[in-house]
C-alpha cells in the first residue's frame, strides 16, 4: 500500500472547537477543559482510502476573528483545509464567506470542507433556524463532544485530496 503525507489545516474563529475536533479524531477523546491554542499545534493521523494510506499532518491554527490575520506561511503547502465554525455563536460564521474566499485565493487547488460544530448545544428547531441564516451551507454538522460526524469530515477531506493528487 502506498503511503502519502498531506498537510491539512484547521481554520476558523477562536473557540469553535477546532482542537476538540482533532482530539476526537486523533485520540478519540473530548477535552472538557477549554484551552485556547496559541500559534499552532500539530497532530497526525493516517487514514486508508483506495489502497492508499494518507498520513494527515494536521495543523491546528490558533483561532482568529478573520483568516486574514492568520500568519500567511501557515497556509503554505497545505493540501486540504477544514473550516470550522460554531453553530451556537453567530459571530463565528458571519465572516465565513469572506474567510473561505480568502483561503481559496491562498490555496486554489486545496479542497475545503466546511464544518458547523457544537451541534449538541442546539435543539432541532434552533438548528433549523441557524441553518436558515448561514452564509454558506456547511458540508457537515458535527459535535466533537459526542463524536458525531467527526470521522466523516476527515475522511471526506482525505478523499478529496486523493482526487486532487490523481
Amino acid at each position: 500500500m502506498r503511503s502519502i503525507s498531506k498537510k491539512v489545516i484547521l481554520a476558523g474563529s477562536f473557540c469553535v472547537g477546532k482542537t476538540s475536533l482533532i482530539s476526537r479524531f486523533v485520540y478519540s477523546r473530548f477535552p472538557f477543559n477549554y484551552q485556547t491554542t496559541l500559534g499552532v499545534r500539530i497532530d497526525k493521523k493516517a487514514v486508508e482510502l483506495e489502497n492508499t494510506s494518507i498520513n494527515m499532518i494536521i495543523w491546528d491554527i490558533g483561532g482568529e476573528q478573520s483568516q486574514a490575520r492568520v500568519p500567511e506561511s501557515y497556509y503554505l503547502g497545505s493540501s486540504g483545509v477544514i473550516y470550522v465554525f460554531d453553530l451556537s455563536r453567530p459571530s463565528s460564521f458571519y465572516n465565513m464567506a469572506a474567510d473561505i474566499e480568502f483561503i481559496r485565493q491562498k490555496l486554489p487547488k486545496a479542497p475545503i470542507v466546511i464544518v458547523g460544530n457544537k451541534m449538541d448545544l442546539l435543539d432541532e428547531r434552533t438548528l433549523e433556524e441557524v441553518k436558515s441564516i448561514l452564509p454558506l451551507e456547511p458540508d457537515f454538522y458535527t459535535s466533537a463532544k459526542a463524536g458525531a460526524n467527526v470521522e466523516n469530515v476527515f475522511l471526506k477531506l482525505a478523499q478529496a485530496m486523493i482526487n486532487v493528487s490523481k
Binding site: 503525507s5 498537510k7 500539530i42 499532518i57 503554505l76 503547502g77 493540501s79
Partner: peptide, 8 residues
C-alpha cells in the same frame, strides 16, 4: 523537510 508544507 519540505519548505512550504513542513512534510518530512
Amino acid at each position: 523537510i519540505h519548505l512550504e508544507s513542513g512534510l518530512l
